Simulated scan of single mutants.
Amino acid sequence: MSRMRIEGSKDAAPRALDYAVARTIYKVLLMYYQEQRTQADIGKIIGQSAATVNRLIKQGRDAGMVEITISPLFDFQHELERRLTAETGLEEALVVPAEFDDQDLVLRAVGQAAAHYLLSRLKDGDTICISGGKGVSAVVEGLRTTRSYKASVVPATGLVQGRHYIDVNHVASELAGRLGGTAYQIHAPMFADSDEQRDMLRGVSAVADVLDRARKASIALVGIGSVLAAGSSYLDFALRTWSPKDRAMISNAGAQGEVIANLLDATGALAPYPRNALLVGLAPDDLRRIPCTIGVAAGPAKVAPICSVLRGGYLKTLVTDERTASAVLDSMQEKS
């Protein structure tokens, strides 16, 4: 938001302008900037052409009769964005105000900001690879388009049955539907039961084709997951699918965060967790080769995971809220 002040004092007006001209310019400036009249309308009022009105406006600006100030409404978020890019290696950061205590509402606002950013980068012919998760689902929910895109949406991992937001095929279909694009589906589980089964699944032509498309995507849209925190989708999946022992295994591996179902340690490297090797999906290093990688996360439980992903250098852009961004910067500084 900007504010416009029209200077009308005798000290501001007479820079190389005589009084009569300065008075006319002042009247024109008031009508143009404060009354929001068009130059054509102003011309009719003062009996001059629109071109003359345009010239008078320029004269007034050059003479110092117009002062524009930008409201500091978003200064705090802008400073956080500047620091995130300067201190973490990100190319871009989007920080939204944390206007709510309800984390679901905060994530919704973050999703809307990420959706707007996605559309600003999306071109016809692009391929978007995605993870499942609440963050990516929030982006899909926040998406508002004015046209259709000839874009493809492909899963970055195998499939998890269950809640709609962790079902990557469902999320891909929803995103493609809102964009007017094409969704590819993967017909393989997220994790194999053995090395042999993993190799077999990755070797199935339909699965291999989807994962190859994901690796060659122009945009990656991924959530950043917590691991052991309450409400963690990964932990919920592990305890429902595997065994309570997996919680101890995850903790012993020093896992701090999750991206495209890969568990990472505090440095951003793959954690020594055996099930990482059984994943049917992209590796974190694959994200580095995608031109535009967008990570979406918000909330206190996501601070350590975001730090882990940033230290690994897997993202080009982070979209989060101001509280989470502040905590991430503090945490990164403490361990630097």
Rank of each mutant, 00 (worst) to 15 (best):
L122R: 00
K123R: 14
D124V: 09
G125S: 10
G125F: 07
D126M: 14
D126T: 03
D126R: 06
T127W: 09
T127S: 08
I128N: 00
I128Q: 02
I130L: 05
I130V: 07
I130Y: 01
I130C: 03
G132Y: 02
G132S: 10
G132R: 02
G133W: 01
G135Q: 02
S137I: 05
S137V: 06
S137N: 12
S137L: 09
A138R: 00
V139S: 00
V140L: 01
E141P: 00
G142I: 00
G142Q: 00
R144T: 01
R144V: 03
T145W: 05
T146L: 08
R147D: 01
R147S: 08
R147F: 14
R147G: 02
R147M: 04
R147V: 04
S148P: 07
S148T: 08
S148V: 09
A151G: 10
A151M: 04
V153L: 14
V154T: 09
P155K: 03
P155V: 01
P155A: 05
A156F: 05
T157I: 15
G158A: 12
L159H: 15
L159T: 03
V160I: 13
V160K: 08
V160F: 11
Q161M: 15
Q161C: 12
G162E: 05
G162R: 11
I166C: 13
V168I: 12
V168W: 07
V168A: 11
H170C: 13
V171D: 06
V171G: 02
A172M: 09
A172D: 04
S173N: 05
L175K: 00
L175V: 00
A176V: 05
L179E: 01
L179Q: 02
G180Q: 13
G180R: 10
G181Y: 08
T182N: 12
A183T: 02
Q185A: 11
H187D: 11
A188P: 07
M190W: 04
M190H: 07
M190P: 01
A192T: 02
D193I: 13
D195Y: 10
E196V: 10
E196W: 07
R198Y: 05
R198F: 06
M200N: 14
M200K: 13
L201M: 06
R202D: 01
G203N: 11
V204I: 13
V204K: 12
S205F: 14
A206Q: 15
A206V: 12
A206W: 15
A206L: 14
A206K: 11
A206N: 10
V207A: 12
D209R: 15
V210H: 07
L211D: 03
L211G: 08
D212L: 14
R213I: 04
A214L: 09
A214W: 13
R215G: 03
K216R: 15
K216V: 01
K216D: 07
S218N: 10
S218W: 08
I219L: 08
I219F: 14
A220G: 06
L221H: 03
V222Y: 10
V222E: 04
I224P: 03
I224D: 10
I224R: 05
G225E: 10
G225P: 03
G225A: 08
V227P: 07
A229R: 11
A229K: 11
A229Q: 07
A230P: 08
G231Q: 09
G231N: 09
S232G: 05
S233G: 15
Y234R: 04
Y234N: 06
Y234F: 14
L235H: 12
L235I: 04
A238K: 10
L239A: 06
L239E: 10
L239F: 11
T241N: 14
T241E: 14
T241L: 12
